[in-house]
């Protein structure tokens, strides 16, 4: 077996183990939440008997380790469980499967993330490479100043500034991104434009600055001097000699930001009332809808681990020492 494949499989196994530990942490963290679903639904006036009966029905009376085993066992079989919401103490059960609740929301979040990433990553790379090429120039300084500004502003502020500029003053985009499963594709894109733009401004800065730094870091290497002394043009020097050795740090920062697009968007979703998974999780936490909270947290953790795994693999396959061992 090729050593790279072995390494990748090892990393994948490590990822699964990490995910297992994360599930333990998620479960214990949720345990620490004050109160539970029964108290949240029944309110303070409920009698102890009613609460106890409702708990028994939901299975909340079992010891924590048994509930964990039940949960993780079901998850491993692909069953995220039933949501608590829709169930009441009277025994009426109008609850929905967690997967059905999360599905459309996750789809929306991934749509927004993908739409942002498709523009942000190429843009960041382009800006990073060109600023490294013309470093010290007016162009370099302007790009750096702008990205520093956007990276320094809290994203809700960026969001409101964009609403001010592109909704109130110049009505170009809608301020509410109220989409659902039936919204046609281009209308979706149009309605998601402002949240996507907000996210773009936040993540491009980070990725662009890292790309620029990774390339400039290499420009002092003897092999870059050698490339210059071969009479290659500055653009060739950067694209052919610096960039291939800079992929590892760039892949890491890109993965970090893509993960952020999935797990860190809740503020932007709230501002634009975008029906994504971040909002769902926050709502579920306040309602103590534990199965949904746990499922969301697990999806977030999985996203992080998967994207970092991809970044690791990129670092490995762009390193000739690992790709072509002696």
């Amino acid at each position: 077996m090729h050593p790279i494949l072995t390494t990748v499989l090892q990393r994948l196994a490590m990822g699964v183990i990490t995910l297992f530990f994360v599930s333990l942490i998620i479960f214990s963290a949720v345990e620490f939440l004050p109160g539970d679903f029964t108290e949240a639904i029944l309110g303070q006036s409920a009698t102890d008997e009613t609460v106890a009966a409702f708990r028994a029905e939901l299975g909340l009376d079992k010891p924590a380790y048994l509930r964990y085993i039940d949960w993780i066992g079901a998850v491993m079989q692909g069953d995220l469980g039933q949501s608590f919401s829709g169930r009441s103490a009277s025994g009426v059960d109008r609850s929905r499967a967690v997967a059905d609740l999360i599905g459309p929301r996750l789809h929306n979040t991934l749509f927004l993330a993908l739409m942002t990433a498709l523009v942000a990553v190429p843009l960041a790379l382009f800006l990073g490479i060109t600023t490294a090429l013309w470093r010290g120039s007016f162009y370099d300084r302007s790009v750096n100043a702008v990205t520093l500004t956007t990276i320094s502003m809290p994203e809700f502020l960026v969001a409101y500034l964009l609403i001010l500029l592109l909704v109130s003053l110049n009505p170009v985009f809608p301020s509410l991104a109220n989409i659902d499963a039936d919204t046609p594709f281009w209308e979706r894109v149009y309605k998601s434009a402002l949240p996507a733009l907000t996210l773009l401004l936040v993540i491009v800065a980070h990725m662009m600055r890292m790309t620029r730094a990774a390339i400039i870091n290499l420009l002092a290497s003897p092999y870059i001097e050698m490339a210059r002394l071969k009479g290659l043009s500055p653009a060739t020097v950067i694209l052919r000699h610096a960039l291939p050795n800079a992929w590892a740090p760039i892949a890491n920062v890109v993965a970090f930001n893509l993960a952020y697009l999935v797990v860190g968007v809740v503020v932007v979703e709230v501002v634009f009332v975008y029906p994504g998974i971040g909002q769902l999780m926050v709502d579920s936490v306040s309602a103590r809808d534990i199965p949904v909270v746990q499922a969301c947290a697990l999806i977030f953790a999985g996203t992080y681990i998967l994207l970092n795994l991809i970044a690791d693999i990129v670092s490995i396959v762009t390193n000739p020492r690992l790709l072509h061992p002696r």
Partner: peptide
């Protein structure tokens, strides 16, 4: 005009 550097190990690009 060509140049031969002191440390060939550093002057060759590891990626090519």
């Amino acid at each position: 005009i060509a140049y031969v550097a002191q440390s060939a190990a550093a002057a060759f690009n590891p990626a090519h």
